[in-house]
Amino acid sequence: MTAKRGLITDTFKVVKKTKREDRRDKKPPPPPTADPEPPCLSERETDLQDLKDFDLDWRFGPCTGISRMKRWERAALHMLNPPQMIKDILLKESTDPDYSESLWHSYPL
């Protein structure tokens, strides 16, 4: 005796596809919103970001084991044209270690 074979639809549920016309009636997605403006940074945050960029710029030589002002002066001595803005920031806040020491100051050599 052979077992009666069933239809595939007996095992799997029939799913009807929607017509293309129904898909066209759907609303289009809303246009992407404009990017929100970045938060305004304080003068200190802007200055520290500029100094960090100076530390990470290898055109002015290595920055480990040396203060930012000494590095700036060394770069100027070797005619590497360091940005004058960096020197102005360093002179303005010469006593603050966040300004005077390089990004890598807290890491051991």
Rank of each mutant, 00 (worst) to 15 (best):
Gly65Thr: 03
Asp88Ile: 09
Asp98Arg: 04
Tyr99His: 05
Arg74Ser: 15
Pro30His: 10
Pro97Phe: 01
Asp22Pro: 00
Lys70Ser: 14
Arg44His: 10
Pro36Thr: 07
Asp47His: 10
Pro31Leu: 14
Thr9Gly: 10
Phe54Pro: 06
Lys52Cys: 05
Tyr99Gln: 04
Lys87Gly: 03
Asp10Ser: 10
Met85Ile: 02
Ile89Pro: 04
Asp50Ala: 14
Lys87Ala: 12
Pro36Ala: 10
Ser100Asp: 04
Lys27Val: 13
Arg71Gly: 11
Lys26Arg: 15
Tyr99Asn: 09
Lys52Phe: 08
Ser42Lys: 10
Ser106Asp: 15
Trp58Asn: 10
Thr2Asn: 15
Ile89Cys: 07
Pro36Tyr: 11
Tyr99Gly: 06
His105Leu: 01
Asp88Pro: 04
Asp53Leu: 07
Ala75His: 00
Trp72Lys: 11
Pro108Cys: 11
Arg68Ala: 07
Asp55Tyr: 02
Arg23Lys: 08
Trp104Ala: 04
Arg59Ser: 14
Pro32Phe: 09
Lys19Val: 01
Pro62Trp: 06
Ile86Leu: 11
Gln84Gly: 12
Lys4Arg: 14
Lys19Asn: 05
Trp72Thr: 00
Asp10Cys: 04
Ala75Met: 12
Glu73Asn: 09
Ile89Val: 08
Ala75Ile: 05
Arg59Asn: 09
Val14Gly: 00
Lys16Cys: 01
Leu51Ile: 00
Ala34Arg: 15
Trp72Ala: 13
Ser106Asn: 08
Trp58Phe: 05
Ala76Thr: 00
Thr18Met: 05
Lys92Pro: 02
Met69Thr: 11
Asp35Ile: 01
Gln84Asp: 15
Trp104Phe: 14
Gln49Glu: 15
Thr95Glu: 15
Pro83Ser: 10
Ser94Arg: 09
Lys70Ile: 00
Lys19Thr: 13
His78Asn: 10
Arg5Tyr: 01
Asp10Glu: 15
Pro28His: 07
Lys87Trp: 04
Lys13Phe: 01
His78Phe: 08
Arg23His: 08
Glu101His: 14
Met1Leu: 12
Trp58Glu: 13
Gly65Arg: 02
Thr9Val: 06
Val14Arg: 05
Lys19Met: 06
Thr64Ser: 07
Ala3Cys: 04
Lys92Asp: 00
Val15Tyr: 11
His78Glu: 15
Pro83Asp: 08
Ala3Ser: 08
Cys63Gly: 14
Leu41Met: 12
Lys87Glu: 09
Arg24Cys: 01
Gly61Lys: 01
Ile89Ala: 10
Lys19Leu: 15
